[in-house]
């Protein structure tokens, strides 16, 4: 491609990607009236920004939603990572009759949008008395994150040489100790990447949380901000709404920028392998 045209294309692409984000970021420092009067102008009064964020954080319910999101995300990871890596390890290193079938079952979960099973899932969670609870959402999130987690970690464990396990065994390690002391530490890069991926996905998750935990005490950030916009409760206070969006998006953007290379590499590897 013509070099100049290529660079021009990149420039347009760059502006169209970052533009909306930058606009939302600085608009969160403007008052509702100011947004309506001159939507593209830069903020003039920094105090207005503090006001917007404190309204969103307090009256908007973002403080509570933030804590809920944090508990649900971290809680899910704490259960998911050991459960997922143990299963992936056994499936990769202790093949038995039916282990391929089980792996296939996990991979099958990647083939369809999980919201399709929402009707029975909703009834099940309700029957267990876990509707509108953090535990319920955590258990469902663990289950729905297992497919991807087992899929990626299975690959990592398979790539580790079996001789290491033999050596550990000759040194008197039990199967259990071999996993925790030798194999899991070796798979750490994979575990880290899987954890970051899930962290981002869980922090952002919307449809399941919308159905399974949608009372004010249990809403996560995405559900909270969506409800706020949909109810038009804050229709007058556009500034606070923009601030709310910033609260939801900035944490993941920071995590993404820190781990960008690993994230991109894993996304590609996952896509090209599957």
């Amino acid at each position: 491609m013509n070099r100049f045209l290529g660079q021009l294309l990149l420039l347009i692409f760059l502006i169209s990607i970052v533009g909306p984000f930058i606009w939302v970021l600085y608009t969160s420092f403007k008052s509702g009236a100011n947004i309506l009067a001159s939507p593209w102008s830069l903020p003039t009064d920094v105090n207005q920004g503090f006001k917007n964020f404190s309204v969103a954080w307090g009256e908007g319910g973002f403080a509570k939603n933030f804590v809920n999101s944090l508990i649900v995300t971290v809680g899910t990871l704490v259960v998911l990572i050991p459960v997922g890596s143990m299963a992936a390890y056994v499936l990769a290193k202790y093949p038995f009759r039916g282990s391929k079938f089980i792996l296939g079952g996990f991979m099958g979960g990647l083939m369809f949008p999980n919201f399709l099973v929402i009707v029975p899932l909703f009834l099940l969670v309700d029957k267990l008395g876990l509707l509108n609870s953090k535990i319920g959402l955590i258990l469902v999130y663990v289950a729905y994150s297992l497919a991807f987690t087992v899929f990626v970690l299975h690959g990592f464990f398979q790539a580790l040489p079996g001789e290491l396990m033999e050596a550990a065994r000759l040194d008197g390690c039990s199967d259990n100790a071999t996993f925790w002391k030798v194999m899991l530490p070796l798979a750490k890069p994979g575990v880290l990447v899987v954890a970051i991926f899930n962290l981002i996905g869980l922090w952002n998750e919307y449809p399941l949380a919308l159905v399974l935990a949608n009372t004010p005490d249990f809403t996560t950030l995405p559900v909270g901000v969506a409800n706020l916009t949909e109810n038009q409760q804050y229709a007058g206070d556009w500034g606070a709404l923009f601030a709310g969006i910033v609260i939801v998006m900035v944490p993941v953007m920071i995590v993404y920028l820190i781990f960008r290379e690993q994230i991109q590499k894993t996304m590609l590897a996952g896509a090209l392998k599957g």
Binding site: A87, Y89, L116, V117, L124, A143
Partner: peptide, 20 residues
């Protein structure tokens, strides 16, 4: 090692899939 993952996945993903 396998049962926690299989049970959780079966209960919350597998069963609802069929129940749909």
């Amino acid at each position: 090692y396998l049962s926690p993952a299989v049970l959780l996945y079966g209960l919350f993903v597998g069963v609802p899939l069929i129940q749909t």
